[in-house]
Design a binder for these strands. Sequence first.
DNA 1: TTGTAAGCGTTATCAA
DNA 2: TTGATAACGCTTACAA
Lengths: 341, 341
Amino acid sequence: MKSKKVTFADIAAYTNFSKTTISRYFNNPDSLTLENQQKIADALVALDYKENKVGRILASGKTEFVGIIIPNLYMHYYSEMLSQILSTYETYGYKFLVFAGNAKADIERKYIEELLAYNIEGMIILSPTIPSRELASYNVPVVGIEREDQYISSVNTDNYMGGVQAAGLLKKSGCDILIHVNGNIPETAPASGRIRGFVDTCKEYHLPYELILTHLGDTFEENRAKIRKVAEQIKQKYPNKKKGIFMPNDTHANVLLNLLIQKYGKLPESYQLIGFDDSPISREAVIPTSTVGQQIPVIAREAMKILSAQMEERKKRRPALPGDPVHKIIPPILIRRNTTI
Amino acid sequence: MKSKKVTFADIAAYTNFSKTTISRYFNNPDSLTLENQQKIADALVALDYKENKVGRILASGKTEFVGIIIPNLYMHYYSEMLSQILSTYETYGYKFLVFAGNAKADIERKYIEELLAYNIEGMIILSPTIPSRELASYNVPVVGIEREDQYISSVNTDNYMGGVQAAGLLKKSGCDILIHVNGNIPETAPASGRIRGFVDTCKEYHLPYELILTHLGDTFEENRAKIRKVAEQIKQKYPNKKKGIFMPNDTHANVLLNLLIQKYGKLPESYQLIGFDDSPISREAVIPTSTVGQQIPVIAREAMKILSAQMEERKKRRPALPGDPVHKIIPPILIRRNTTI
DNA sequence: TTGTAAGCGTTATCAA
DNA sequence: TTGATAACGCTTACAA
């Protein structure tokens, strides 16, 4: 059982070719006669050869590894993104070494060191923790997704347009007052664009609006407590108005929706609700919830496209200089369900 | 910028030691004098050495890679399990190569071949696709989670006890009829234990019960349509009875809950509901839903514990024979929320 | 405590 | 079309 692994040397001995020829059989078979190709093919079967990529990596320097640093997997947005990135294996053949970073910079740095030690060819970073300037300094192709991206390539949702779409839908729904609830998002985060898009749209159409920017808590229970307060506050402030509320994501939209349903047994007509992300909860909620959908499969695909282009470039004999970071913007898709007209 | 990587040879030249001594500095520093340790430490800084694990792998055969084959990441159960497995990096130091298998045996086989080509030291398999007998034949330590496990080690939830707990809670809630809805689960799948636990409990206490075993569809929309029918059927059949319904998982429990809420504006007192998994939806539902919780962190930890033991054993000079597969059973935790008394 | 030399399984470079 | 030989970066006997 503990049989030694079969190597090129064994195949070479068996077939009376050199190791070089065996290598060529795999990398450039056309340079062998058909007859000899067959001989080797037979030997592979006879000896039950299994390829060993470690030797190849060492000799060639190409690992076909891509590192991924993702903040967590309990948020659907991230797990879905990871899933879509993994699925690009079929297209590009890169293997993924995945780390879930705990938003602690030191730990994430350690992960990156480890990835680099395995000669990864590139990285995809979803975690916002480490500044793009530092990421760029590692001298490995990097693509960021929905994070600060001044010094690295990136793919982001068009958050501004998302804000515009949300406000637009609430406007159509005939709301008297538009409200956007969100956390304290740093200016550099792409997500901050939603706020600007929302505000600009309200201003453009002279719609009364209010921004409620406050930290909504780190656990579901905190979220609920906080959102309950916010809801109460809104109710007090706009008692006889039709309220259009744009929540920062579908999870939070669902919390608000459930609070209203628990209170009124249905969604009162004076409330219009829209979330963000198109995560499953928006579809599976008591009342399927309108949302601004992020095109996660497209984002993942574009990220790998950019990354693989940069990785391929580096493999050339005379690689072009890195050049400026590429920033790709993916439009969101407005999804109308039953919490808006 | 394209500076050659610093190697042990460079450090050796710089310090006038041999490569061996440099290697020892990393692997067995105590065998050097403190003074020489310091010399080398200084050289590492001076030369800005970055470790390269590929050479080490080739020389030692130890990759510290573990392969994971997971069916998908859109089901919370899987993404949470993956997350917990990844987090064991802090404990064991193994890196994870992740593939999301599409439940297609041929594709998963290809993934396994690829993993083997990188000399992974072990595998964790969550996908039910490939028979354990075949997995065992790869001669690499394998641990399965919630899948058929005759020939491999495994960690599973005590599904039988889960069924017992669910039935027990519905009994306490004073239901006249206990109903368990589920798909057509193969006998070999650990999850089938839930059905047996449920039935045995009903029989033991002479409780009227019904099993509704039918495929619930592959998409959320199919689920909803199917569950709507099932709900209608239950309503017709037991019009004046208090019905205790045990759903196969929290997603399906939530669908049923929402159908009832949409119809009645609340959960009628003649319905008691319990799900399975303790996934976020059970907590975030309009009415927080009772459920049988799987201890995912514990399962993940145990899986890595078993796997790492087997991997370590193999590294010994005279490894013990593989021995029989280990099967670890983790008890579920009954979580009472607001859909049962 | 330190060094020498032979690998580990491929690929790359010449030469034939 | 094929082969000999030297890498690739590290570990591991065996020696000193």
